[in-house]
Amino acid sequence: MSLVAEHVSVSIDRADLLADVSFTAAPGRVHSLIGPNGAGKSTLLGVLAGDRAPDAGRVLLRGRRLDEWPLRELARERAVLTQEHGVTFAFRSREIVEMGRHPWARTPAEDDDEREIARAMAVTDVAHLADRPVAHLSGGEKARVALARVLAQRAPVLLLDEPTAALDLRHQEDVLRLARAQAADGDAVVVVLHDLNLAAAYSDEITLLQRGRVAAHGSPAEVLTAERIEDVYGQAVEVIEHPRSGVPLVLPVR
């Protein structure tokens, strides 16, 4: 169930948002996309989702080009969490999560709707918000409801764009633990992150983007070196080994 981008490029007004980017998301692994603001992370995620067509290159899901998938079938194969969680209408939280089951309407999987909705709301800690209008939720609560919708969709590929951005410390960790759990169940998980230490702690693989190009790809230890981070981010750091987990720990030089 690999999702593969081959030599993908995207340009706007002759500016390269992505330039010859190749990327593979494999089942059972958490893949983090990192890089400075404007590096192309969200653009790449949009291309991987099929929400944005590349100007060059192609994206394959199960060996089939994304533009060849009927939309409902594609929604059963990949679920997408975007950065924006705005809701115009007065939906309640549970109604938002229910939307994740729409691709399975009129299929045998429809019988699982109630169970999947309850599971998704429980693991994202939003069950107590079920009857609350989304407009009345905090930013972090809206983000968790949006994640519950994605999990309820039960797609084997998860694409998460900055899922920890509005969350407190506990819920940041909860979200990445969920990502790891989904990968352990065999899903391919791609997550855009700004926090390098979260990426180091929870990723199997990291792709570092710089000005629309792949600057590095590999394990957290291979990618997160002090020299590379300073070169890409323009910020001096120290990288040490975490005393318990052994993963890289990135500390800005202050």
Rank of each mutant, 00 (worst) to 15 (best):
R119K: 04
A120V: 07
A120Q: 12
A120W: 08
M121E: 11
M121I: 06
M121D: 13
A122T: 10
A122S: 14
A122W: 04
V123H: 02
V123Y: 01
T124P: 15
T124G: 13
D125I: 06
V126I: 06
A127Y: 00
A127G: 11
A127R: 11
A127H: 12
L129W: 04
L129Y: 13
A130H: 05
A130N: 07
D131M: 10
D131G: 15
D131S: 14
R132M: 15
R132S: 11
P133Q: 03
P133N: 06
V134I: 15
V134A: 08
A135K: 09
A135Y: 05
A135F: 07
A135M: 12
H136D: 00
L137Y: 03
L137F: 08
L137N: 11
L137G: 10
S138P: 09
S138F: 04
S138N: 06
G139R: 01
G139C: 09
G140F: 06
E141G: 05
K142H: 06
K142Y: 01
A143G: 10
V145H: 04
V145N: 00
L147G: 03
A148D: 07
R149W: 01
R149P: 12
L151K: 03
A152H: 01
A152L: 04
Q153D: 06
Q153P: 09
R154H: 09
R154G: 00
R154C: 07
R154V: 02
A155K: 01
P156F: 01
P156I: 03
V157D: 00
V157Q: 02
L158G: 09
L158H: 09
L159A: 14
L160N: 10
L160G: 09
L160M: 09
D161L: 03
D161K: 05
E162Y: 01
E162S: 10
E162P: 13
P163W: 06
T164A: 15
T164D: 15
T164R: 07
A165D: 12
A165Q: 09
A166E: 03
L167G: 15
L167M: 13
D168R: 08
D168L: 05
D168I: 00
D168Y: 12
L169S: 08
L169R: 07
H171N: 12
Q172T: 12
E173A: 13
E173W: 12
E173M: 14
E173C: 14
E173G: 11
D174R: 15
D174E: 11
D174C: 09
D174P: 04
V175D: 10
L176S: 10
L176V: 05
R177E: 02
R177P: 00
L178V: 13
L178T: 11
A179D: 11
A179Q: 07
A181M: 07
A181E: 13
Q182T: 06
Q182H: 12
Q182S: 11
